[in-house]
Design a protein around this nucleic acid. Structure first.
Length: 486
RNA sequence: GUCUCCUUCGUCUAGUGGUUAGGACACCGGGUUUUCAUCCCGGCAACAGGGGUUCGACUCCCCUAGGAGAUGCCA
């Protein structure tokens, strides 16, 4: 059987970690099994539809490097891939069900339904009371004459059960009486609900496997009933566990960033996100966890999926990100951090400027210190801004020294720097060492005051390299400013 | 309330009847180092609880507890 899977997002918000993981697993499943990956836009909710959200779907996956074989942007033999352009098919399916009396029209007002819900909440009874199921043709005409457009509800049998075989959960069986009574499948605006639309489309698009989040598990029996009523063959289902925050609840804003675009803005690399997300509910073996997308496409297997929910660990993502930054070429890191430095107004928008040259030279100094790209401006600030106001005199003074001693050291360091022009790293360091010896102190007690003076912070990129990037003139100014503070 | 799913270190997980229960992140300690970071070494730390089945259970079954999800003219 040809594997055909789909990712079916609804363009109502930004692509978030959970959705992207579902998409990734579908994509990997298709790739690993020589199948096709389809993007289908489920834009049946006109209230929440957003053009920006649609664009975000395209942007997110382009950035991640995940592409589909068929979709609204690239076409394919099973189009259209916007559900809003497939309304006739849903209508036809609903009409068939109506004709065969497997569904019925319902004229209940939103108000009546809301009343039902609040009564239900009080009495512990939930769901529609099937009021319109008993309507006769005369009553229906009368409602229609009043200008009420009906919705279509599926008749859930009160006997029997719906069962399916989940790839992860094995046999799942639900009694019909435990299903929500007679759910709406076609709304009064002529649009289908998710239930009808996904069944019709998965069938027509010949989707073989549906990997989706476990939040759908409880409505899958309903979908099975729909497949039976429509006399379609259902696909193979695989309900993926949730991605949660630290508190075990569905990942949401209060846990931190959730949309991919936010991670992107914060300076995460796509390969880090892909690698980390792939490991949320999936594993390869007992030791390997470092994978490129291309490698995942080869080794992904649904048998290794986990059925327990996974907590999203921001720290581990950071660790992956730091690794991928370190593994990147200096040239790439330069390109990656450029926008951040531009946003900080450290370098102009033009690509090749003197400032860009300095940044290029700084990459080796900062690369292994970056967990996210957005940390770059902080590490390099001293190269672009005067930092003499960023610290106070106490920070200049090492623990085992006093202000006077520190001043002496800085005064002694000054001519060493003044004499530099090529900044031979080893030579300068040797001179600092000699100076420390002469003053009967540790190298650190020479370096720390100088570091604070030059970079404005007790932690910085390697000092000698930083001095070289700063240049003699500015370095001396800062040493003088530090001396003045003491 | 009802229905359902889930349960191995703090976190992600390996494990499919016999293991000193392995790895990674985090954390702690040590080393390298001019700070920070990288890197290296080491440490802490788990089978939710109770019953079975079995010569033997983390692994199979049942119950309990805890967590989560669904219960929309949203997906």
């Amino acid at each position: 059987m040809t594997v055909r899977v789909r990712y079916a997002p609804s363009p109502t918000g930004l692509q978030h970690i959970g959705g992207v993981r579902t998409a990734l697993f579908n994509y990997l499943f298709a790739r690993a099994n020589g199948g096709r990956f389809v993007l289908r836009i489920e834009d049946t909710d006109r209230e929440r539809y957003s053009q920006a959200a649609l664009q975000d779907i395209y942007d997110t996956f382009a950035w991640l490097g995940v592409s589909w074989d068929e979709g609204p942007d690239c076409g394919g033999p099973y189009g259209p891939y916007f559900q809003s352009q497939r309304l006739d098919r849903y209508r036809r399916a609903a009409d068939t069900l109506l004709q065969e009396e497997k569904a019925y029209e319902c004229f209940c007002s939103a108000k009546r339904l809301a009343g039902l819900r609040s009564e239900g909440a009080r009495d512990g009874v939930v769901g529609y009371d099937r009021h319109c199921r008993a309507l006769n043709e005369q009553q229906r005409s009368s409602y229609r004459a009043q200008g009420i457009t009906p919705v279509v509800r599926l008749k859930i049998p009160d006997q029997g059960a719906a069962a399916f075989d989940d790839m992860l959960l094995n046999t799942v069986k639900r009694k019909c009486k435990d299903l929500s009574p007679d759910p709406i499948i076609l709304k009064s605006d002529g649009f289908p609900t998710y239930h009808l639309a996904n069944v019709v489309d998965d069938h027509e698009m010949e989707i073989s496997h549906v990997l989706r989040a476990q939040e759908w598990l409880s409505s899958t029996p309903l979908h099975i009933l729909l497949y039976e009523a429509l006399q379609y063959e259902p696909p193979r289902y695989c309900h993926l566990p949730f991605v949660t925050g630290k508190d075990g609840q569905k990942l949401s804003k209060r846990h931190g960033a959730t949309s991919v675009i936010e991670f992107r803005k914060q300076g995460y690399l796509p390969e880090a996100l892909i690698n980390y997300i792939a490991l949320l509910g999936w594993s390869y073996d007992d030791s390997r966890e470092y994978f490129s997308l291309a490698e995942l496409e080869k080794v992904f297997s649904a048998e290794k999926l986990n059925k327990a929910p996974a907590v999203f660990d921001y720290k581990k993502l950071e660790w992956f990100n730091g690794n991928y930054i370190r593994e990147s070429s200096d040239e790439r890191v330069l390109e990656l951090i450029r926008p951040y430095l531009q946003a900080a107004r450290f370098i102009p928008k033009d690509a090749d400027t003197a400032e860009a040259g300095v940044v290029r030279a700084a990459i080796p100094l900062v690369k292994e210190r970056l967990k996210t790209l957005s940390e770059a401006p902080g590490l390099l600030r001293f190269l672009f801004e005067d930092v003499t106001g960023a610290y106070n005199a106490e920070e200049l003074v090492p623990k085992e020294m006093d202000a006077a001693g520190t001043k002496t050291i800085l005064l002694a360091v000054r001519p060493l720097i003044a004499a530099q022009d090529d900044y031979d790293g080893e030579a300068l360091e040797a001179e600092f060492r000699a100076l420390a010896d002469r003053h009967n102190t540790k190298l650190g007690n020479v370096m720390m005051p100088l570091r604070v003076a030059v970079t404005g912070s007790r932690s910085s990129p390697p000092l000698v390299g930083s001095l070289r990037l700063l240049g003699t003139e500015r370095a001396l100014q800062r040493v003088d400013a530090a001396i003045a503070k003491l």
